[in-house]
Design a protein around this nucleic acid. Structure first.
Lengths: 181, 181
DNA sequence: GCGTATATGTTCATTACCGTACAAAAACTT
DNA sequence: AAGTTTTTGTACGGTAATGAACATATACGC
Protein backbone atom coordinates (compact mmCIF):
# COMPACT_ATOMS: atom_id res chain seq x y z
CA UNK A 1 0.00 0.00 0.00
CA UNK A 2 1.13 3.52 -0.76
CA UNK A 3 3.03 5.11 2.07
CA UNK A 4 0.75 8.15 2.09
CA UNK A 5 -2.35 6.02 2.40
CA UNK A 6 -0.80 4.13 5.28
CA UNK A 7 0.03 7.34 7.11
CA UNK A 8 -3.40 8.82 6.55
CA UNK A 9 -5.09 5.63 7.66
CA UNK A 10 -3.02 5.56 10.82
CA UNK A 11 -3.67 9.23 11.48
CA UNK A 12 -7.41 8.63 11.24
CA UNK A 13 -7.27 5.62 13.53
CA UNK A 14 -5.21 7.50 16.08
CA UNK A 15 -7.51 10.49 15.91
CA UNK A 16 -10.56 8.28 16.27
CA UNK A 17 -9.07 6.47 19.26
CA UNK A 18 -8.16 9.78 20.88
CA UNK A 19 -11.68 11.09 20.37
CA UNK A 20 -13.17 7.96 21.87
CA UNK A 21 -11.25 8.87 25.02
CA UNK A 22 -13.43 11.89 25.59
CA UNK A 23 -16.59 11.46 23.52
CA UNK A 24 -19.03 8.67 22.83
CA UNK A 25 -19.30 7.19 19.37
CA UNK A 26 -22.52 8.95 18.34
CA UNK A 27 -21.28 12.31 19.55
CA UNK A 28 -18.18 12.09 17.41
CA UNK A 29 -18.75 13.74 14.03
CA UNK A 30 -16.82 13.02 10.87
CA UNK A 31 -15.66 16.60 11.08
CA UNK A 32 -14.19 15.93 14.52
CA UNK A 33 -12.17 13.06 13.11
CA UNK A 34 -11.01 15.13 10.14
CA UNK A 35 -9.88 17.94 12.42
CA UNK A 36 -8.21 15.65 14.94
CA UNK A 37 -6.44 13.67 12.22
CA UNK A 38 -5.43 16.93 10.54
CA UNK A 39 -6.39 15.83 7.04
CA UNK A 40 -8.58 17.19 4.27
CA UNK A 41 -12.25 16.37 4.11
CA UNK A 42 -12.03 14.69 0.74
CA UNK A 43 -9.17 12.58 2.00
CA UNK A 44 -11.29 11.08 4.73
CA UNK A 45 -14.03 10.14 2.33
CA UNK A 46 -11.58 8.56 -0.08
CA UNK A 47 -10.64 6.18 2.72
CA UNK A 48 -13.92 5.55 4.50
CA UNK A 49 -17.48 5.84 3.26
CA UNK A 50 -18.98 6.51 6.67
CA UNK A 51 -18.17 6.63 10.35
CA UNK A 52 -19.49 3.09 10.64
CA UNK A 53 -17.07 1.90 7.98
CA UNK A 54 -14.27 3.48 9.96
CA UNK A 55 -15.35 1.68 13.10
CA UNK A 56 -15.47 -1.55 11.18
CA UNK A 57 -11.99 -0.97 9.80
CA UNK A 58 -10.66 -0.13 13.24
CA UNK A 59 -12.20 -3.28 14.67
CA UNK A 60 -10.59 -5.32 11.91
CA UNK A 61 -7.28 -3.73 12.75
CA UNK A 62 -7.70 -4.59 16.40
CA UNK A 63 -8.80 -8.14 15.63
CA UNK A 64 -5.90 -8.68 13.26
CA UNK A 65 -3.72 -7.96 16.24
CA UNK A 66 -5.76 -9.87 18.79
CA UNK A 67 -6.01 -13.02 16.69
CA UNK A 68 -2.48 -12.82 15.32
CA UNK A 69 -0.55 -16.04 15.85
CA UNK A 70 3.15 -15.88 16.54
CA UNK A 71 4.45 -17.88 13.58
CA UNK A 72 7.74 -18.45 15.35
CA UNK A 73 6.02 -20.23 18.21
CA UNK A 74 4.13 -22.48 15.85
CA UNK A 75 7.34 -23.48 14.17
CA UNK A 76 9.45 -23.99 17.25
CA UNK A 77 7.15 -26.39 19.05
CA UNK A 78 4.34 -27.19 16.72
CA UNK A 79 4.00 -30.75 18.04
CA UNK A 80 2.62 -29.40 21.30
CA UNK A 81 0.45 -27.10 19.20
CA UNK A 82 -1.30 -29.97 17.52
CA UNK A 83 -2.30 -31.09 20.98
CA UNK A 84 -5.25 -29.79 22.95
CA UNK A 85 -4.00 -26.38 24.02
CA UNK A 86 -7.05 -24.31 23.25
CA UNK A 87 -6.70 -22.90 26.74
CA UNK A 88 -3.26 -21.51 25.94
CA UNK A 89 -4.62 -20.00 22.77
CA UNK A 90 -7.47 -18.33 24.62
CA UNK A 91 -5.08 -16.93 27.21
CA UNK A 92 -2.96 -15.63 24.39
CA UNK A 93 -5.95 -13.89 22.85
CA UNK A 94 -6.86 -12.43 26.21
CA UNK A 95 -3.40 -10.93 26.51
CA UNK A 96 -3.80 -9.24 23.15
CA UNK A 97 -7.22 -7.99 24.12
CA UNK A 98 -5.71 -6.48 27.23
CA UNK A 99 -3.18 -4.59 25.12
CA UNK A 100 -5.96 -3.05 23.04
CA UNK A 101 -8.25 -2.59 26.01
CA UNK A 102 -7.90 1.17 25.98
CA UNK A 103 -9.69 1.30 22.63
CA UNK A 104 -12.03 -1.60 23.23
CA UNK A 105 -13.39 -0.20 26.48
CA UNK A 106 -14.41 3.02 24.79
CA UNK A 107 -15.93 1.28 21.81
CA UNK A 108 -17.92 -0.97 24.10
CA UNK A 109 -19.10 1.90 26.26
CA UNK A 110 -21.70 3.08 23.74
CA UNK A 111 -23.74 2.01 20.72
CA UNK A 112 -20.59 1.19 18.81
CA UNK A 113 -20.26 -1.72 21.20
CA UNK A 114 -22.94 -3.70 19.38
CA UNK A 115 -21.00 -3.51 16.14
CA UNK A 116 -17.82 -4.47 17.90
CA UNK A 117 -19.52 -7.49 19.44
CA UNK A 118 -20.88 -8.62 16.09
CA UNK A 119 -17.49 -8.48 14.36
CA UNK A 120 -15.85 -9.99 17.40
CA UNK A 121 -18.17 -12.98 17.31
CA UNK A 122 -17.50 -13.50 13.62
CA UNK A 123 -13.82 -13.85 14.32
CA UNK A 124 -14.35 -15.99 17.38
CA UNK A 125 -16.46 -18.38 15.35
CA UNK A 126 -13.45 -19.12 13.18
CA UNK A 127 -11.33 -19.79 16.25
CA UNK A 128 -13.76 -22.18 17.92
CA UNK A 129 -14.89 -23.93 14.73
CA UNK A 130 -11.74 -26.00 14.33
CA UNK A 131 -11.51 -26.80 18.01
CA UNK A 132 -15.02 -28.20 18.19
CA UNK A 133 -14.23 -30.81 15.54
CA UNK A 134 -12.05 -32.60 18.07
CA UNK A 135 -14.79 -33.16 20.60
CA UNK A 136 -17.57 -35.71 20.68
CA UNK A 137 -20.89 -34.61 22.05
CA UNK A 138 -24.60 -35.36 21.92
CA UNK A 139 -25.30 -31.66 21.59
CA UNK A 140 -25.31 -30.35 17.98
CA UNK A 141 -21.99 -28.72 17.04
CA UNK A 142 -23.80 -25.65 15.74
CA UNK A 143 -25.36 -25.11 19.12
CA UNK A 144 -22.07 -25.58 20.94
CA UNK A 145 -20.32 -23.19 18.58
CA UNK A 146 -22.83 -20.41 19.19
CA UNK A 147 -22.74 -21.09 22.89
CA UNK A 148 -18.99 -20.80 23.21
CA UNK A 149 -18.68 -17.79 20.97
CA UNK A 150 -21.33 -15.83 22.84
CA UNK A 151 -20.07 -17.03 26.17
CA UNK A 152 -16.54 -15.86 25.44
CA UNK A 153 -17.59 -12.58 23.85
CA UNK A 154 -19.75 -11.70 26.82
CA UNK A 155 -16.96 -12.76 29.14
CA UNK A 156 -14.68 -10.25 27.46
CA UNK A 157 -17.31 -7.51 27.62
CA UNK A 158 -17.64 -8.18 31.33
CA UNK A 159 -13.87 -8.19 31.75
CA UNK A 160 -13.54 -4.77 30.16
CA UNK A 161 -15.63 -3.39 33.01
CA UNK A 162 -13.81 -5.42 35.65
CA UNK A 163 -10.21 -5.12 34.67
CA UNK A 164 -8.80 -6.17 38.02
CA UNK A 165 -8.41 -9.71 36.66
CA UNK A 166 -5.52 -11.15 34.73
CA UNK A 167 -5.85 -12.98 31.40
CA UNK A 168 -5.11 -16.20 33.27
CA UNK A 169 -7.93 -15.49 35.71
CA UNK A 170 -10.40 -14.88 32.91
CA UNK A 171 -9.25 -17.97 31.05
CA UNK A 172 -9.79 -19.99 34.22
CA UNK A 173 -13.28 -18.55 34.70
CA UNK A 174 -14.20 -19.22 31.10
CA UNK A 175 -13.14 -22.85 31.02
CA UNK A 176 -14.64 -23.58 34.44
CA UNK A 177 -18.10 -23.23 32.90
CA UNK A 178 -17.24 -25.09 29.72
CA UNK A 179 -17.57 -28.85 29.10
CA UNK A 180 -14.04 -29.33 27.71
CA UNK A 181 -10.60 -27.91 28.28
CA UNK B 1 1.90 26.36 3.95
CA UNK B 2 0.45 23.20 2.52
CA UNK B 3 -0.59 20.71 5.15
CA UNK B 4 1.42 17.92 3.51
CA UNK B 5 4.60 19.99 3.49
CA UNK B 6 4.13 20.84 7.14
CA UNK B 7 3.74 17.20 8.09
CA UNK B 8 6.73 16.11 6.03
CA UNK B 9 8.87 18.88 7.44
CA UNK B 10 7.91 17.94 10.98
CA UNK B 11 8.54 14.26 10.27
CA UNK B 12 12.04 15.07 9.05
CA UNK B 13 12.82 17.27 12.05
CA UNK B 14 11.56 14.62 14.44
CA UNK B 15 13.52 11.92 12.67
CA UNK B 16 16.65 14.05 12.68
CA UNK B 17 16.29 14.82 16.38
CA UNK B 18 15.76 11.15 17.16
CA UNK B 19 18.85 10.19 15.16
CA UNK B 20 20.91 12.81 16.97
CA UNK B 21 20.03 10.92 20.15
CA UNK B 22 22.12 7.96 19.10
CA UNK B 23 24.48 9.14 16.33
CA UNK B 24 26.72 12.11 15.77
CA UNK B 25 25.96 14.55 12.99
CA UNK B 26 28.58 13.32 10.51
CA UNK B 27 27.61 9.70 11.02
CA UNK B 28 24.00 10.41 10.15
CA UNK B 29 23.38 9.87 6.45
CA UNK B 30 20.61 11.41 4.42
CA UNK B 31 19.37 7.88 3.90
CA UNK B 32 19.09 7.43 7.68
CA UNK B 33 16.91 10.50 7.89
CA UNK B 34 14.76 9.37 4.98
CA UNK B 35 14.25 5.95 6.57
CA UNK B 36 13.61 7.31 10.03
CA UNK B 37 11.17 9.93 8.73
CA UNK B 38 9.50 7.30 6.58
CA UNK B 39 9.35 9.43 3.47
CA UNK B 40 10.44 9.05 -0.14
CA UNK B 41 13.91 10.03 -1.24
CA UNK B 42 12.72 12.65 -3.70
CA UNK B 43 10.53 14.13 -1.01
CA UNK B 44 13.49 14.84 1.21
CA UNK B 45 15.38 16.57 -1.55
CA UNK B 46 12.39 18.70 -2.46
CA UNK B 47 12.53 20.08 1.07
CA UNK B 48 16.24 20.29 1.80
CA UNK B 49 19.19 20.53 -0.55
CA UNK B 50 21.65 18.94 1.83
CA UNK B 51 22.04 17.71 5.39
CA UNK B 52 23.59 21.06 6.27
CA UNK B 53 20.53 22.88 5.00
CA UNK B 54 18.42 20.66 7.20
CA UNK B 55 20.54 21.49 10.22
CA UNK B 56 20.22 25.17 9.40
CA UNK B 57 16.46 24.87 9.11
CA UNK B 58 16.25 22.98 12.39
CA UNK B 59 18.34 25.63 14.10
CA UNK B 60 16.06 28.34 12.73
CA UNK B 61 13.09 26.43 14.07
CA UNK B 62 14.71 26.19 17.49
CA UNK B 63 15.71 29.86 17.49
CA UNK B 64 12.25 30.96 16.43
CA UNK B 65 11.09 29.30 19.62
CA UNK B 66 13.95 30.45 21.81
CA UNK B 67 13.69 34.09 20.78
CA UNK B 68 9.91 34.17 20.59
CA UNK B 69 8.45 37.00 22.63
CA UNK B 70 5.15 36.54 24.34
CA UNK B 71 3.17 39.29 22.65
CA UNK B 72 0.58 39.20 25.42
CA UNK B 73 3.21 40.08 27.99
CA UNK B 74 4.44 43.00 25.95
CA UNK B 75 0.93 44.36 25.72
CA UNK B 76 -0.09 43.82 29.32
CA UNK B 77 2.82 45.62 30.91
CA UNK B 78 4.83 47.19 28.17
CA UNK B 79 5.77 50.20 30.32
CA UNK B 80 8.00 47.98 32.43
CA UNK B 81 9.29 46.48 29.18
CA UNK B 82 10.61 49.79 27.93
CA UNK B 83 12.70 49.92 31.08
CA UNK B 84 16.05 48.18 31.57
CA UNK B 85 14.95 44.57 31.94
CA UNK B 86 17.47 42.92 29.66
CA UNK B 87 18.15 40.53 32.51
CA UNK B 88 14.56 39.33 32.47
CA UNK B 89 14.76 38.90 28.73
CA UNK B 90 17.91 36.84 29.00
CA UNK B 91 16.40 34.65 31.68
CA UNK B 92 13.41 34.18 29.45
CA UNK B 93 15.64 33.09 26.59
CA UNK B 94 17.48 30.73 28.90
CA UNK B 95 14.20 29.08 29.84
CA UNK B 96 13.42 28.48 26.19
CA UNK B 97 16.89 27.13 25.59
CA UNK B 98 16.37 24.70 28.44
CA UNK B 99 13.19 23.44 26.79
CA UNK B 100 15.07 22.69 23.58
CA UNK B 101 18.16 21.47 25.38
CA UNK B 102 17.59 17.86 24.35
CA UNK B 103 18.21 18.81 20.73
CA UNK B 104 20.79 21.48 21.38
CA UNK B 105 23.02 19.24 23.45
CA UNK B 106 23.27 16.70 20.66
CA UNK B 107 23.87 19.32 18.01
CA UNK B 108 26.60 20.87 20.10
CA UNK B 109 28.24 17.54 20.82
CA UNK B 110 29.85 17.27 17.38
CA UNK B 111 30.88 19.25 14.32
CA UNK B 112 27.33 20.48 13.82
CA UNK B 113 27.95 22.55 16.96
CA UNK B 114 30.02 25.08 15.03
CA UNK B 115 27.14 25.77 12.68
CA UNK B 116 24.74 26.04 15.57
CA UNK B 117 27.02 28.53 17.29
CA UNK B 118 27.33 30.65 14.16
CA UNK B 119 23.57 30.91 13.66
CA UNK B 120 23.06 31.39 17.37
CA UNK B 121 25.41 34.35 17.42
CA UNK B 122 23.64 35.92 14.47
CA UNK B 123 20.39 35.90 16.38
CA UNK B 124 22.01 37.05 19.59
CA UNK B 125 23.51 40.00 17.79
CA UNK B 126 20.02 41.25 17.03
CA UNK B 127 19.03 40.90 20.67
CA UNK B 128 22.01 42.77 22.09
CA UNK B 129 22.18 45.42 19.39
CA UNK B 130 19.20 47.38 20.65
CA UNK B 131 20.22 47.04 24.26
CA UNK B 132 23.68 48.45 23.71
CA UNK B 133 22.26 51.72 22.36
CA UNK B 134 21.11 52.56 25.86
CA UNK B 135 24.56 52.45 27.43
CA UNK B 136 27.37 54.94 27.36
CA UNK B 137 30.88 53.62 27.17
CA UNK B 138 34.39 54.52 26.09
CA UNK B 139 34.73 51.13 24.46
CA UNK B 140 33.50 50.97 20.81
CA UNK B 141 29.97 49.59 20.57
CA UNK B 142 31.05 47.10 17.91
CA UNK B 143 33.55 45.64 20.30
CA UNK B 144 31.06 45.42 23.13
CA UNK B 145 28.50 43.79 20.89
CA UNK B 146 30.88 41.07 19.81
CA UNK B 147 32.02 40.58 23.36
CA UNK B 148 28.56 40.06 24.76
CA UNK B 149 27.35 37.86 21.95
CA UNK B 150 30.33 35.52 22.23
CA UNK B 151 30.26 35.62 25.99
CA UNK B 152 26.62 34.61 26.11
CA UNK B 153 26.91 31.99 23.37
CA UNK B 154 29.84 30.33 25.12
CA UNK B 155 28.00 30.54 28.41
CA UNK B 156 25.15 28.58 26.88
CA UNK B 157 27.52 26.02 25.39
CA UNK B 158 29.06 25.54 28.80
CA UNK B 159 25.61 25.31 30.40
CA UNK B 160 24.57 22.50 28.07
CA UNK B 161 27.38 20.42 29.55
CA UNK B 162 26.61 21.48 33.13
CA UNK B 163 22.87 21.33 33.29
CA UNK B 164 22.67 21.31 37.06
CA UNK B 165 22.08 25.07 37.00
CA UNK B 166 18.81 26.91 36.62
CA UNK B 167 18.20 29.66 34.07
CA UNK B 168 18.30 32.15 36.92
CA UNK B 169 21.69 30.84 38.00
CA UNK B 170 23.10 31.20 34.52
CA UNK B 171 21.61 34.64 34.13
CA UNK B 172 23.26 35.62 37.40
CA UNK B 173 26.62 34.23 36.30
CA UNK B 174 26.42 36.00 32.96
CA UNK B 175 25.60 39.45 34.30
CA UNK B 176 28.15 39.16 37.11
CA UNK B 177 30.91 39.42 34.51
CA UNK B 178 29.22 42.11 32.45
CA UNK B 179 29.58 45.89 32.89
CA UNK B 180 25.83 46.62 32.92
CA UNK B 181 22.66 45.01 34.10
C1' DG C 1 44.97 -2.03 -6.89
C1' DC C 2 39.78 -3.61 -7.96
C1' DG C 3 35.21 -5.11 -7.14
C1' DT C 4 31.29 -4.49 -4.17
C1' DA C 5 28.34 -2.06 -1.42
C1' DT C 6 26.49 2.05 0.22
C1' DA C 7 25.28 6.96 -0.21
C1' DT C 8 24.19 10.91 -2.99
C1' DG C 9 21.56 13.61 -6.14
C1' DT C 10 18.41 14.06 -10.26
C1' DT C 11 14.50 13.07 -13.24
C1' DC C 12 9.79 11.83 -14.20
C1' DA C 13 5.27 9.68 -14.66
C1' DT C 14 1.82 8.28 -11.36
C1' DT C 15 -1.01 8.84 -7.41
C1' DA C 16 -2.84 10.57 -3.03
C1' DC C 17 -3.82 14.64 -0.64
C1' DC C 18 -5.42 19.40 -0.50
C1' DG C 19 -8.72 23.07 -0.42
C1' DT C 20 -12.53 25.08 -1.95
C1' DA C 21 -17.04 25.18 -3.40
C1' DC C 22 -21.38 23.41 -3.42
C1' DA C 23 -25.91 21.01 -2.41
C1' DA C 24 -28.61 18.48 0.58
C1' DA C 25 -29.79 16.58 5.02
C1' DA C 26 -29.99 16.80 9.98
C1' DA C 27 -29.98 19.12 14.25
C1' DC C 28 -30.90 22.89 16.87
C1' DT C 29 -33.38 27.74 17.93
C1' DT C 30 -36.88 30.64 18.29
C1' DA D 1 -43.24 25.50 11.81
C1' DA D 2 -39.97 28.31 9.87
C1' DG D 3 -35.33 29.78 9.94
C1' DT D 4 -30.49 29.09 11.25
C1' DT D 5 -26.48 26.34 11.98
C1' DT D 6 -24.02 22.19 11.69
C1' DT D 7 -22.88 18.19 9.41
C1' DT D 8 -22.67 15.36 5.55
C1' DG D 9 -21.28 13.93 1.12
C1' DT D 10 -19.58 14.97 -3.73
C1' DA D 11 -16.73 17.15 -7.40
C1' DC D 12 -12.62 18.95 -9.33
C1' DG D 13 -8.38 21.52 -10.53
C1' DG D 14 -3.99 22.11 -8.39
C1' DT D 15 -0.07 20.40 -5.75
C1' DA D 16 3.06 17.52 -3.02
C1' DA D 17 4.61 12.80 -2.17
C1' DT D 18 5.87 8.53 -4.22
C1' DG D 19 8.96 5.03 -6.07
C1' DA D 20 11.65 3.59 -9.48
C1' DA D 21 15.38 4.31 -12.48
C1' DC D 22 19.67 6.23 -13.24
C1' DA D 23 24.45 8.22 -12.91
C1' DT D 24 27.90 9.50 -9.79
C1' DA D 25 30.64 9.43 -5.72
C1' DT D 26 32.42 7.62 -1.53
C1' DA D 27 33.71 3.87 1.54
C1' DC D 28 35.14 -0.79 2.52
C1' DG D 29 37.01 -5.59 2.08
C1' DC D 30 40.08 -8.61 -0.27
Amino acid sequence: MDRRQQKTRQAVFDAFARLLERKSYTNITVQDIIDEANIGRSTFYSHFETKDELLKALCSEIFDHVFAEEVSKEKTHDFSKTGNNIKAEITHILYHLMESSRYIKRILSCESGEMFMRYFKERLTQVFEGELEKHESDIPKEYMLNHMVCDFAETVRWWMNNDSYSPEDISEFFFSTTPFK
